[in-house]
């Protein structure tokens, strides 16, 4: 099957004012299959957000190939990015009309996703009148109700308190299992990645370092000890803090968890 996202030899370089250049994406190759939940895990500054911006079409200056063919893109940013002068419903309408979704479908889409996220009663509230967690859920509704084939998510829950974040992650998995959208989810949180993903790509310094498939069967439970153990192994693999180079030979039970080197990062999804 044709992948929903096909990236080949993607390079991105920033030029500083003094003329020096910094390569933030180094020859990335990536295929994401339709309906796959991919997490890209890496420390801040590793290039994950830059990659998402290229995929979303926000950044058009790069070398190589970045084809997105799996339908319209929905994007969930790190912050809700709601228009503060519009109500919750007004924000959804803004997205629906921008994406030219036929008006007669609006109501059905809005009520469906508002109900899924428990926001049905908050249509007429302004963003400043709801909590941060609700605002982010509303942003999720906005991303979903334009019926994207692909959802790009840039550390969307990192600014929320843990309890709220947990609940939304669980909501997200429920919605994903129902709708099977292709998701590329960027995070620095190993536990989150292990809980959510079919496949995890570890990104460091602008390159994919490792790839693994998450062997935990679905539906998953957030408290599953398998998620915990797996995330522990992942964190160990990166040393004490992500972002530091991992000493050679410290990769954990590669075989057991299916770690593999990046040469196989373009394997078709399972």
């Amino acid at each position: 099957m044709k992948p929903a996202i096909h990236v080949a030899s993607l390079r991105k370089t920033f030029t500083a004012r003094d003329g020096s250049t910094r390569t933030v994406l180094k020859n990335l190759d990536l295929d994401v299959g339709a309906g796959e939940f991919l997490c890209i895990l890496g420390p801040s500054g590793c290039g994950k957000s830059t990659l998402l911006n290229v995929l979303a079409g926000l950044d058009k200056v790069y070398d190589g190939t970045a084809d997105v063919s799996g339908g319209r893109i929905g994007y969930l940013f790190q912050e809700p990015r709601l228009l503060p002068w519009l109500t919750a419903e007004g924000n959804l309408d803004f997205a629906l009309s921008s994406c030219r979704v036929p008006t007669k479908r609006w109501e059905q889409l809005k009520s469906r996703y508002l109900a899924m996220t428990g926001l049905s009663d908050y249509r007429n509230y302004y963003p400043h009148q709801i909590s941060g967690g609700m605002a982010q859920r509303l942003a999720l509704v906005r991303a979903l109700c334009v019926e994207p084939g692909i959802l790009l998510m840039d550390e969307p829950f990192s600014g929320l308190d843990e309890i709220t974040a947990r609940r939304i992650r669980t909501d997200l998995l429920t919605i994903w299992e129902e709708t099977r959208k292709t998701i590329v989810f960027v995070t620095h949180n190993a536990y989150e990645a292990c809980f959510l993903a079919d496949r995890i790509l570890v990104m460091m310094g602008g390159a994919f370092e490792q790839e693994m498939r998450v062997p935990i069967p679905r539906p998953r439970s957030y408290d599953d000890s398998a998620v915990f153990e797996l995330s522990r192994d992942v964190i160990r693999a990166f040393g004490d803090g992500m972002g530091r180079p991992t000493p050679a030979g410290r990769w954990p039970g590669n075989v057991a968890h299916g770690w593999s080197a990046t040469s196989t990062a373009t394997l078709p999804p399972a």
Binding site: G57, Y75, F77, E79, R81, F94, A95, S98, C99, R142
Partner: peptide
């Protein structure tokens, strides 16, 4: 950031 959001949602 709001402009980027609008661009992602294909706003002309």
């Amino acid at each position: 950031k709001l402009v980027a959001m609008a661009r992602v949602f294909e706003a002309p």
